[in-house]
Design a protein around this nucleic acid. Structure first.
Lengths: 216, 216
DNA sequence: ATATTGCATTTTGTATACAAAATACAATAT
DNA sequence: ATATTGTATTTTGTATACAAAATGCAATAT
């Protein structure tokens, strides 16, 4: 009756979903026995999944106390954006040096559904935006780079599928990056990729500052 | 009789040591029961430690087949150096923006034992070099940055405590970075930090190419 | 001699068991 | 009423148990 593949994998996916959807609330303790029963598995593969989530900053383990859903604060979100600026900048540079037309095509394809559209579906665009940034990393073929980009998870969780800036604004920036990659101008590609993240980071900081002061 | 802290932690440290020391050889399969017995623990905390090592690229799990000590190849080492260039460059920039004299002092202190020395102990300097680069990251206070810098482990494993370049050469570069941070010149600090990693990467590539061709 | 099949052994992935630490809470003291 | 202690309950960390997959190897076929 038992089907062997790797139980911890689907458990990991499900838990991640639960955290992003707020089924597991920030700060909430993950009582292993309860979640294991809920998912119909034992604690062993669950713990494996939780350890992976911990490595991705989505949960935090306090020894002998328990594992808790993390609540990324303002500073951490900013910090993640600094990392993204560095890594996506490098990714753009590496792509520009490859002179590969298939790369350009794949990057452009992220946004073709939205070109020449009067009304852009925000949710769809936000998903496309996320894909674009992940693709930028993946297309470099740099495995360690791709593996350490996992912390974009935090970004997903915090921003959800909302957008930091309006599509009109970011669309233009995306194509500036793509065009620099296409012409093989690695310095410019890196510059644009970094400026893009930097701008979003600054907007985010403002939003959070506003939100925090309103709550006072 | 059982002392509770977190067994997987010392197991992780010991396994990492065994991998770096070649007690566990590249490509070798880690038979859980055997290692568990060797370390006098059960498979449960051992598996936890192995999962952490997997996240750090030191071992590789092939489901249903086993967990194997990884053998980083030339491409991966180069790829890691691209990541380091991006991240350490950003770190230097962030430190320069902080205008904190204690940061300068701590960075300088890494190399004070070697200043004005005629003969530099290579092993000691290699250790200092490693500390300097880790400190550069840590002093930013950027937690996600620090957490994703773990892949420097691969570096340690591959290079061991040898040096890519002679101390005279890198010492000068280190102080260029430190001085740029001290004067608060973030652009220059980033430039120097990146150039430093880039040069080592290029030397490494040459060394490996030479070694590989000799073996043919 | 080499390839193939079948069976015994090993090893993995998961579930369960159990001791120690953490927690909750009631009973008592201040 | 609040603080404190002691005890029952929960939960964690680790060890063990067990079924299914992987592996090794001998016996047989080609």
């Amino acid at each position: 009756m038992i089907q062997y593949t790797d139980l911890s994998q689907p458990i990991y996916e499900r838990l991640k979903e639960m955290i992003v959807n707020d089924e597991l609330k920030p700060g909430e303790k993950i009582v292993q026995e309860k979640i294991a029963e809920l998912l119909g598995v034992s604690r062993t593969p669950l713990m494996k999944a939780l350890l992976t989530l911990e490595n991705e900053f989505l949960v935090e383990s306090i020894p002998r106390r328990g594992i808790f859903v993390r609540t990324p604060d303002l500073k951490e979100i900013i910090d993640v954006y600094f990392c993204r600026e560095a890594l996506e900048g490098m990714a753009a540079r590496l792509l520009a040096e490859q002179h590969d037309t298939s790369i350009i095509k794949q990057l452009k394809d992220c946004f073709t559904p939205f070109i020449a559209k009067k009304k852009i579906n925000t949710k769809a665009y936000a998903k496309a935006d996320e894909n674009f940034h992940k693709l930028l990393i993946k297309l470099t073929g740099n495995t360690p780079l791709d593996k350490i980009y996992f912390f974009s998870n935090i970004h997903d969780k915090v921003i959800g599928y909302g957008l930091v800036r309006p599509p009109e604004e970011t669309m233009e920036e995306h194509f500036k990056i793509i065009n620099a990659i296409a012409t093989g101008d690695s310095d410019t590609a890196e510059q644009y990729a970094r400026a893009h993240i930097r701008k979003s980071r600054e907007i985010l900081i403002d939003q959070y500052k506003k939100r925090t002061s309103e709550e006072l």
